[in-house]
Each structure stands twice: as C-alpha cells, then as structure tokens.
Design a protein around this nucleic acid. Structure first.
Lengths: 256, 256
DNA sequence: TTTTTAAAGTGTTTGATTGACACTTAGAGA
DNA sequence: TCTCTAAGTGTCAATCAAACACTTTAAAAA
C-alpha cells in the first residue's frame, strides 16, 4: 500500500454498525492486516472499521468510503454521533505496532468522528477489503478487548442507539422489508432490555401508523403463521428526524 | 501573538452559546482582531467563538479554554453536538484575509467540532479576550452573515437545541436560580415557537417534580407579584441525560 | 381614594391513552 | 388425533391531555 498523500493525519472516522443475528444485537468488527508487507497483526485484536479522512472529501463521504473499503458495505445511512479526541487515545503500547506499520505519522494525534448505523444483516454481504483480514458480526455481549479506544466508542454508540430508539422510529432499519409483529417486538425487547406486553405493543404499533399489514403470512412454520407487515414510512434519513410516540409501559417519558 | 507550536492545524472547536436577553433568545458572537500586527479585520463580520485545538488537550478542555480565551466565560457545560468537515468550509474568498493573518497553515483543511451551551446571561460577564475585538449577544432573528460556515453551524445548533429541549429538562440552564412560572413558560414558548396553555403548563411543571416553590415573591411589579421557583434537580451534566416527560398540548410525542 | 391596567393564579370536564390481564387459534410434527 | 408453539385478540380502570374563563393582587393613573 502506498499511502495516499491526501490522507489527513489528524482526523479519522470509526463506524459502529449494528445488526441483528439470531435474535442477538451484533456489532460489525474487523481484524486488520498491516499495510506494509513486513507487518503482521500479531495479537489479532478486532476493532471498529475506521481510517483516516482524505483532505478532499467531506466527513460523511469519508465514513461511507472507509466502511466500503474495509467491509464491502456501501450506501448505508451513517449517523455521526460524537467525536473522540483524547490526546492519548491511540497511544497504548499494544496499538503501536499496527500504527507504525501503516501510518506515515504514527505519533500524530488523531481525533476520530464516530458514526453509527443500523442495518438489516440479511440484505448485505460483508466482504473484507484489501486491508482487512476478517470482518464479522459479534454479539454485543461477547465484545472483548478492542484496539485503541474502540471499546469506549462502542459503549457510547450503544448508549446513543438506546437513546435514539426511544425517540426515533429507527428500529425498522434493523429488520428486513417484511417482518412480523413478533420480530418487531423482540427487537424492541432486545434493545431496551426489557419485556413488553404483546397486546399493548401491537395496539401501539398498529395505531401509530408506522406499519402496514400485508395479506401475506408466514409459511411452513410449526405454529400459527404470523402476518407480515411493512414499515409505512419515508426515507432512511427521515427516520432520524421524525419523532414519533411509541410509549411502552414502565418506561421513561419524554419532554415535548 | 506567536502561534503555539502545539496547535493542531486540522482540528478546531466552535461554540454556539445561547442566552436569554429581554425575552429574546440570543447567540454569543465575537468579532476578531487579527493576530499579526499587520492584520486588520476589515469587513467586521462576526462569528462563533472558536479556534484550533492544542495537541495536548482533549476536546472538552479545548472548548472550555477557547471559550474562556475569547469571551471570558469559563466552567460552563458545553455539549458537543456535531462535527463539520466540508473540505471547502473555510475556503471562501472573504474569509481568507483573516486566516492568512493568524494561521500558520492558512490552507490546511480544518474539521471543526461544534459545541453548544445554554447560560443564564445575568450570571456571567462577557469579556472579550486579547484576540477578540468585541463579544456580544445577538438575538437569533438578527443574525446575518457570519464568517466561514458559522451560519450553518449556528442553524444546526438551534435545531439541536430545539430537539434537546423537547427531551431533556435543560431549559432551566437559561434562567436565573430563581424564576417565576411566567419566566419558565415564556422561555418554552420562545424556544418552541408556539404558545402553551398557562394552566396546563403550570400543572405539568408542578407535578413533574422539576421545580420547587419558594415562599418569596416578586416585589414592586405593577401587577400581582409572582411566586418564585427554583429548579429542583441535580447537576448540569445530569440535565442532559435525565429524560423527563413534559408533554405540551399539540406537540409531537416521543418513543419510549 | 377610586379606577384602571397587567399579569398571576386557580378547577373541571371530556376524550384519549396507558397498563394490567388470559384465553383461543392455526399449523406442523409426533 | 394429540401436542407443541407462537399468533392473535378485548376489556376495564386509572391516568393524562386539551380545552376552557374568571378572580386576585399590586401598582399606576385618574
């Protein structure tokens, strides 16, 4: 790899991509190759997909490009939620070897812009890029020691996700186009980490106007087949700005 | 001014500080001197207080330092809400002369971290720093052409404020320690840009537990004197994380 | 001293929403 | 045909939201 001269040595982007696999909330993590041929990623730790920003691209473009280069994902809506800029955030000893292997200025202080996204894992295929040894979904309960300050970034992303899901109807982004009420309910239960009443949940969702029932039903399941629904809303970006009421029992309530 | 060698040429902080003056929501703006003696700020445009981050300080510290250096304000809670990184954001012709006057690398691409804060204007004194010709409160309806992309940043800050005030009980930060129900109600009306019913508003606020009535009343006003209240809550920082219900009629409602 | 002016302060009713709660139905597989 | 599993469904009581108008207090003006 020859580093592009237009890479800004001081600004990076890191992406926390959430998806649902086997009823578990998962995060997309990568394991990087060193860029110089002499470098081997010795300790095999994983991290969030992220890299330096180019001087001629804006931040959202950079996030999109970096995620595509490292994981093959592209065109997903990335929400920038926080910047991390501790002067020592990439200075831990065990992160040095990789930095020295790939960065022209391994000692430069790097501020990172954290993005998060929710995606339907069934709709995309994760393809490690040329700098990526491996890219995989890891259940959030199994996330261990990540590179740099990525544990901190991931924790902040998870908090931001929990907050956002209480305010914006973004849960639909994690589900396939067609889903059952059971799918939707268990998604809320996974993210909110509590159970909700089935009858109240259905009433709330149906009256909200957010979903539309299809006539189609499940087929071949060994119980009463569930009806499919589709999200009845507008574009992805709008999901992040239209505030909708879906109060669940026992929960906090909100100013407005 | 000799530029500190530790200034990171690629990362800055800009602060949108909101306050209330004469029943108008105002933004704190500054008019800068050039740093080199040869430079005069010719066109006299105003902008948000902001500057480059030092390499040895974290972002929140940088925001606090920069705001203090430019306006004399310190110790206020600054909320980082977005990063702006358009490659051309500081490249407009009319912004060049100032950049050339003060920056070692006037062509460097600068990403800025936008912070916002709400303060009680009666509690603080604005003192322009040595690089600041003037610092003043400007009603948001009178904000014209600001330097760089500061109009865009301010608009985003205002949107973030309107969103936050619907979700977190931060309105109190704009008011003095003691305030009347009328003060509080008109603050909500100013920020939400709509009227609310006085009886419903009082009931909501009193039942919320957010305020505590004092026995003290106004004195010398030419109408029935209003009772004073105090905010009944915890620290500033907690205001930004405790979600509280204060639903107003006609308003959107919110997931939870 | 009386009247005017301005904002404070106060309750009720109606309709909508929440939260708690348990049984029946549909289909696959044994 | 029996069993298993998840889908699907309704009611009641309590709480909350929204709409609505008059009285009180004090200063200032007449």
């Amino acid at each position: 790899m020859s580093l592009s001269p237009s890479l800004n040595p001081h600004v990076s982007v890191d992406c926390s991509i959430f998806g649902l696999n086997d009823n578990a909330l998962c995060l997309l993590l990568i394991n990087r190759n060193g860029a110089k041929s002499t470098f081997q990623n010795a300790d095999n730790r994983f991290g969030l997909p992220g890299d330096l920003v180019r001087d001629n691209e804006n931040l959202d473009e950079a996030a999109d490009r970096i995620l595509r280069e490292l994981t093959g994902l592209s065109g997903i809506f990335l929400h920038q939620f926080k910047a991390f800029g501790d002067p020592l955030r990439i200075a831990k000893a065990k992160d040095r070897s990789w930095l020295e292997g790939v960065r022209q200025e391994p000692d430069a202080r790097v501020i990172t812009l954290a993005y998060l996204a929710l995606i339907d894992t069934s709709k995309v295929e994760i393809k490690p890029g040329s700098f990526t040894k491996e890219a995989k979904w890891v259940p959030i309960s199994e996330i261990k020691d990540l590179v740099f300050d990525h544990n901190e970034i991931f924790e902040a992303a998870l908090l931001a996700l929990r907050e956002m899901i209480q305010i914006y109807p973004i849960a639909f982004k994690l589900l396939p186009l067609k889903f059952t009420m059971g799918d939707l309910q268990s998604l809320y239960e996974i993210i909110l980490e509590r159970e909700v009443d089935k009858r109240n949940f259905r009433r709330k969702m149906l009256h909200s106007g957010l979903v539309r029932a299809l006539t189609e039903k499940q087929y071949g399941v060994s119980n009463k087949p569930a009806r499919f629904y589709v999200f009845n809303g507008s574009s992805s970006e709008e999901l992040y700005s239209s505030i909708v009421n879906l109060k669940m029992e026992g929960s906090i309530t909100v100013f407005n």
